[in-house]
């Protein structure tokens, strides 16, 4: 996630950065593995829509401990917006069948819209519990502590449910040696649109232009002085003059 991106001739250039799992989705995998430990008999399947290269992200999740992985891939799925992605994810979740809970990341780093979880929930007609910092399952229901602007909200729903998680869920575990071995040998099934019996809807929101932000006027001015009071006075005067208060 420290990859350097820049705008290059209207295209996004990643330089030679490798495709990695979206950091927010690492938290989602962690959240799912915690639930597998808490609820006996449960399994974790990781699901992704993407090109063949997205198998690397799925393998990372397998190495962390997920049981199975599925890639949805089809040449027609190139320019999905979140609504399109949500409808395809909903179709895949229905095809998997018997799913109690789907855990999402808060948002993707690239476009960062954070819309897909709620849209998938609506497409399925399931409840949406967003921005969970804590998840507890209790006899067919789930209670989630949501982290919102104003603090925390505790909310309850019947399963099945869609949940998105934030960092408070806990640090993603490192892949174990055994996990890495298992992941490297895993054959990840690939589902096409035909396999899902789904069709793709044209993207509603499209990019017309890509721009680099205006360069920041740089060069820091270090404030020095004989005493803390003198430094503080000088800095306060500068900030008052800059009209940023």
């Amino acid at each position: 996630s420290e990859a350097k991106v820049k705008a290059e001739g209207g295209q996004i250039s990643w330089g030679d950065a490798p495709l990695v799992i979206n950091p927010f989705d690492e938290y989602a995998v962690e959240g799912a593995l915690q639930q597998r430990e808490a609820v006996s008999g449960s399994t974790v399947t990781v699901l992704c829509i993407g090109p063949e290269s997205a198998k690397e992200a799925l393998k990372h999740a397998l190495a962390m401990g997920a049981d199975d992985a599925i890639l949805v891939s089809d040449p027609a799925l190139k320019d999905l917006d979140t609504l399109g992605a949500a409808r395809i994810l909903a179709a895949a979740i229905n095809k998997i069948g018997g799913v109690d809970m789907v855990i999402f990341g808060r948002q993707t780093l690239d476009s960062g819209s954070g819309l897909t979880p709620a849209q998938t929930a609506r497409a399925l007609g399931w409840s949406m519990l967003g921005l969970a910092g804590q998840i507890k399952v209790d006899s067919g229901s789930v209670i989630v502590e949501r982290v919102i602007e104003e603090g925390r909200q505790s909310i309850n729903a019947k399963l099945p449910a869609i949940i998105s998680v934030v960092q408070s869920i806990g640090e993603p575990r490192y892949p174990s040696f055994m996990g890495i071995r298992k992941a490297s040998k895993a054959e990840i099934p690939v589902w096409s649109l035909a396999d899902l019996g789904a069709s793709v809807q044209e993207a509603i929101v499209t990019r017309s232009e890509l721009m680099s932000p205006p360069a920041r006027e740089s060069a820091v001015e270090i404030i020095t002085g004989e005493s803390p009071t003198e430094i503080a006075d000088k800095l306060a005067d500068k900030l008052i003059a800059e009209k940023v208060l």
Binding site: V5, T206, R207, E209
Partner: peptide
């Protein structure tokens, strides 16, 4: 802003 503010995009909507 996209990519955490490293870039900006202009978008339009067809609905």
């Amino acid at each position: 802003p996209i990519y955490e503010g490293k870039l900006f995009e202009k978008v339009t909507c067809s609905s």
